[in-house]
């Protein structure tokens, strides 16, 4: 696996608590804004969607693309971030 970003490691390091959605790897300011407008203001809401899609990578990426026009790199980062977080804390 390719090395992960600092943001990724930070996120995966601890329970997400009330972290904003922008703390997710792959989600920067722009995507964060878009997600917030769509109602996904906290990281845990995105986690909810992630879980509802049964951790399916393809579907999750598709969803990211639809909701906040994320590119595949961003959505893959975000997916991996949530995936690793789940492996750790769920």
């Amino acid at each position: 696996m390719s090395s992960t970003s600092q943001k990724h490691r930070n996120f995966v390091a601890e329970p997400m608590g009330e972290k904003p959605v922008t703390d997710l790897a792959g989600v920067g300011e722009v995507l964060g804004k878009r997600l917030e407008t769509a109602g996904f203001d906290k990281a845990y809401v995105v986690l909810g969607q992630f879980l509802v899609l049964k951790k399916d990578k393809e579907l999750f990426q598709e969803w990211m693309k639809e909701t906040c026009s994320a590119n595949s790199k961003q959505s893959a980062d975000c997916y991996q971030c949530l995936k690793d977080w789940c492996d750790e804390f769920l």
């Binding site: 969607q49 899609l53 049964k54 399916d56 393809e58 579907l59 598709e62 969803w63």
Partner: peptide, 17 residues
């Protein structure tokens, strides 16, 4: 394919799928 819950938030996704 074994889908998760299908509701308004996921429906279009599953349709595409």
């Amino acid at each position: 394919f074994n889908p998760g819950p299908i509701h308004e938030n996921t429906r279009t996704l599953y349709l595409k799928k």
